[in-house]
Computed example of a mutant assay.
Amino acid sequence: MRNRTSPSDFILLGLLLKSEITGIVFTVIFVIFVVAVMANLVMIFLIQVDSRLHTPMYFLLNQLSIMDTLFICTTVPKLLVDMVSKEKTISFVGCGLQIFLYSTTIGSEFFLLGLMAYDRYVAVCKPLRYPVLMNRKVCLLLAAGAWFGGSLDGFLLTPITMNIPYCSSLSINHFFCEIPAVLRLACTDTSLYEALMNICCVLMLLIPVSIISISYSLILLAVHRMHSAEGRKKAFTTCSSHLTAVSILYGAAFYTYVVPQSFHTPEKDKVVSTFYTIVSPMLNPLIYSLRNKDVMGAFKRILTHCSSQRVVASIA
């Protein structure tokens, strides 16, 4: 294969190589996409309009919903279009933009989930000082730090990935431009870059995982000292949703960026990528809404308000 001398289109081979069940898979992914976008937008709307949700925890949840919405919109629309069209190409610039957006959003989500563990630690272990330790300025700094950490990942990895010489065969065996899949097309040895990328990703996982580990260790100690069964139940309820979201995203990321490439196959990579790019953004708002009385209460109040407005309008 000869080297690529100028930027050209990549070909995305897609999620499925067999076309027999494309229609079913398309329908499932489309439904998940719609549910994910709607659920996250509803979370953002409720947190913005309901004053009872104007707290540090829901401010961070609002940021999580924004990240999930951007994340799933970066990859899934292109996947759905490719599943129903003959042309499955993505431009060189489009591929680079996709790498930057998903690297930034997932990196930001890594940091945000770690910082949300600190919020849970303060809420459980230092409830009286919670308004001081988690004031608006601190929340803004935490959110800005998460976005900055994620964008740093995108700005570091994207230029290097897109400046590697690629061969004339530009068929990516994936449904989006994920860095490990793109690097398989390189015409040069990328082992050094892959090692640096793995170190970068390990650090990005290690920092939030350390925060989560320390925070929940202190939370467990505090819960162990509690004499009230109701207090323990409330503490576990407060933390369970966050731990569920962390397990889903970090587990998939650990496989993709930490497990050696010798254990990877294109089929396994697609399954794991499907889980964290499609399923996780749908599950996060559902986990935090269905298991949260405050969110469900806000949703019911909005519905009641809308119903009363209709009644008034019909009478008038």
Rank of each mutant, 00 (worst) to 15 (best):
F26D: 06
K234G: 14
L80A: 08
P285R: 02
A222D: 12
A316W: 15
A117H: 07
R129I: 00
L141Q: 12
L112A: 11
R52I: 05
L303F: 06
Y130V: 05
V272R: 05
P260G: 07
R301F: 01
G96A: 13
L141K: 11
F236I: 08
Y58L: 04
S215Y: 06
I172Q: 06
P208N: 08
Y255A: 10
S213Q: 12
H227Y: 00
S6D: 13
V279N: 06
T244C: 11
F110Y: 05
T75V: 09
S307P: 00
V122G: 00
Y255H: 07
A222K: 13
I21L: 13
S247G: 04
S171D: 13
G297D: 08
C201I: 01
S51C: 11
V209Y: 15
N284M: 09
D50K: 03
I199A: 15
V28C: 13
S241Y: 05
L115H: 10
I32Q: 05
K137M: 15
C177M: 05
S8Q: 15
A245G: 11
L46P: 02
L249G: 11
F33D: 01
I99V: 15
F71Q: 03
R291A: 14
S108P: 00
V138G: 00
D294W: 00
T244Y: 01
F59T: 02
C167P: 00
L141Y: 12
I47M: 05
L79V: 14
S240Y: 07
S103Y: 02
L17F: 02
M282H: 02
F110H: 02
L113Q: 08
L13Y: 05
R184A: 07
G297S: 07
A143S: 15
K300A: 13
F236G: 05
I106W: 00
T69V: 02
L12F: 07
L156Y: 14
H174G: 09
